[in-house]
Design a protein around this nucleic acid. Structure first.
Length: 308
DNA sequence: AACGCACCCAACCGCATCTCG
DNA sequence: GCGAGATGCGGTTGGGTGCGT
């Protein structure tokens, strides 16, 4: 067997020896890698180009971070995975010094099991136990370091209720929202494993203004909900959609790019910097989409994926 | 000490997409 | 537009290692 791309050559497979690593590092640092298929030939390696590229990107690259994933990195992986799924290369782009392979392995060996042990489906990030989904407005607290799931039924418009689930891997610090824009509700510790917010305890204004909710956060005792004045006059769904379209048009106009397909890395970086300079809070959008539309409308997944 | 099992992770495989002539 | 080769990506494999019996 062997790679089809290099059937004619005598190809070594398996683990790389230190000598092979030396050859590859020496060649790449001196000459770069304009064409991976020619690298083994010029570097004096009996490997295929594909294997060389993998070895370099996953192990020999000087900018790679070594060691265990930090709690912050783990959180980032969980958050982005919730949005994008198994798009390891995209996730790895948000973790400097980490490779897609590393992220994938970390997910499969650690995070996946952790989520399952916490009663979460690692694919959907929803509760594995269906019974919990029938409780209205509840916050599950699985264990001391873990996942919190806030689920509730909210009025999307006059005709429809939307069932939502928002997951927190840790309890975030409450943001410093202005008092006029925030609502607070308490939840009770029912047991060590469950925290509930009963519907009765939810302030009326929270339900009435649900279409204006833009983010939530909580600590051990409270849930904080903020709303954005920009969304005051539109429904929640319309507001999000309009904001996304507006920002995309603005950015594309600025860059002279009407097509949302961004094909090369340079343009990708420019786009990212555009997002960073934009006033629009994509983090906020992300948190909203996580809670509201992740299983509701796949078009929004695409919208979000485009931002990454 | 020997064995079996589970886990981790580097590397491979195959498919999709891109690039270039 | 087409085809071949190059590259990128996600899923899978299998060797090394640690741990329990």
């Amino acid at each position: 067997m062997g790679h089809r791309c290099c059937n004619k050559q005598k190809i070594k497979r398996g683990l790389w020896s230190p000598e092979e690593d030396d050859k590859l590092v020496t060649y790449i640092t001196t000459h770069g890698h304009k064409s991976w298929s020619s690298v083994p030939k010029f570097a004096g390696l009996q490997r295929c180009g594909k294997s060389c590229r993998l070895r370099w990107t996953n192990y020999l690259r000087p900018d790679l971070k070594r060691g265990s994933f930090t709690v912050e990195e783990e959180q980032i992986i969980i958050d982005i995975h919730r949005i994008l799924g198994n798009r390891w290369a995209q996730i790895a782009k948000h973790l400097p010094g980490r490779t897609d392979n590393e992220v994938k392995n970390f997910w499969n060996s650690c995070i996946k099991k952790k989520l399952i042990s916490q009663g979460l489906d690692p694919n959907t990030h929803n509760l594995l136990s269906s019974s919990s989904h029938h409780k209205r407005n509840n916050l599950s607290y699985q264990n001391s370091n873990s996942i919190f799931i806030l689920s509730s039924q909210m009025p999307l418009n006059t005709n429809n209720l939307i069932e939502t689930t928002q997951t927190f891997a840790s309890l975030p610090t409450p943001s410093t929202f202005s008092p006029s824009n925030q609502y607070q509700t308490s939840f009770n510790v029912i047991s060590n494993d469950q925290l509930y917010v009963s519907e009765q305890e939810q302030p009326r204004s929270l339900t009435e203004n649900i279409s204006n909710i833009c983010s939530t956060s909580c600590n051990e005792n409270s849930i904080w909900v903020s709303r954005d004045d920009d969304f005051r006059d539109s429904t929640f769904e319309e507001g999000i959609k309009a904001q996304v379209e507006k920002e995309k048009e603005k950015i594309c106009d600025e860059k002279g790019m009407k097509d949302k397909e961004v094909n090369n890395e340079k343009e990708d970086i420019e786009m990212n910097s555009c997002f960073e300079n934009s006033n629009f809070d994509f983090g906020l959008l992300e948190s909203v989409l996580n809670s509201e539309f992740i299983s509701h409308d796949l078009d929004y997944m695409d919208e979000l994926a485009w931002n990454f």
